[in-house]
């Protein structure tokens, strides 16, 4: 800090030397700044004298600076020679306007802007949360629907299986019954046929004896002229057969 101010102070006298030809203006400012400087000089000079007495803002560096400036310049215009950031004459104005500006800014931010942003962010957050909840609910609904569908499908499949099985059983039974019936009928017919065959055979066998006797009589008659009665022949045939 000290070296900075020294530099400034050393720079200042040269510039004031250059400006010296215009003593009427009584300051060292460049032409562009001349008019405000002229207005400012008397008042700031007066305050500068008052400042060290008032006291609290003037740092030791400032005091040093004043004396040096006065030693070099020897003029009454040291107020504007001070390195601007350490020029305590401007402190009051800067503080007041900072308080006004920053106070206003703080008020606007805390009462208007920030609640608005916070509200928007909260709304968005709520909206996203509720949308997510809604999506979750719909997903659950979908899952439930899928589960119900699967259940119905399983039941239907089971029912179809049952129907198929019972139908098969019924058909099987019907077939079985038909077969049994047919078999019984066939067995009856078979038995009947066997009876008839038996009868026919018995009858045929009985006729065989008569035929054999007739044939034997005819043979004997044609061979030897021996008369054999039918009764004998029949008896003989019966004997032979019995043997």
């Amino acid at each position: 800090m000290a070296s900075d101010t020294d530099d400034t102070v050393q720079a200042a006298p040269t510039s004031s030397d250059q400006e010296q030809p215009s003593p009427a203006a009584g300051d060292q400012a460049s032409p562009a700044q001349a008019s405000p400087e002229v207005d400012e000089q008397p008042s700031s000079g007066g305050e500068e004298n008052a400042a060290p007495a008032g006291g609290e803002h003037a740092s030791p560096a400032d005091g040093e600076l004043h004396t040096e400036t006065q030693a070099h310049g020897g003029a009454d215009d040291h107020g504007s020679d001070v390195f601007p950031p350490f020029d305590s004459t401007t402190f009051a104005s800067q503080l007041v306007w900072l308080a006004i500006a920053f106070g206003l800014f703080y008020y606007l931010m805390s009462k208007m802007i920030l609640p608005r942003i916070a509200q928007t962010l909260e709304q968005r957050h709520d909206r996203i949360a509720s949308d997510l909840a809604e999506a979750e609910r719909l997903k659950n609904e979908t899952d439930a629907a899928i589960a119900a569908y699967e259940q119905a499908l399983t039941e239907a499949r089971q029912k179809a299986g049952d129907i198929a099985r019972s139908t098969r059983e019924r058909v099987q039974e019907a077939i079985e019954a038909d077969r049994t019936e047919a078999e019984t009928a066939l067995a009856d017919k078979l038995a009947e046929a066997e009876t008839r065959i038996g009868e026919v055979r018995t009858k045929a066998l009985a006729e065989v004896d008569t035929i054999a006797a007739d044939a034997a009589q005819a043979l004997i008659g044609s061979l030897g002229g021996v008369k054999v009665t039918k009764t004998e022949l029949t008896k003989t045939v019966g004997d032979v057969r019995a043997q």
């Binding site: 008042s43 305050e47 401007t90 009051a92 104005s93 306007w97 006004i100 500006a101 920053f102 800014f105």
Partner: peptide, 20 residues
Amino acid sequence: LDLSFTNSALFMMLTVATTA
């Protein structure tokens, strides 16, 4: 006290006005 509205005050107010 010199409470002039200065170039510093102007830019403070400009900052506030622009930002707000």
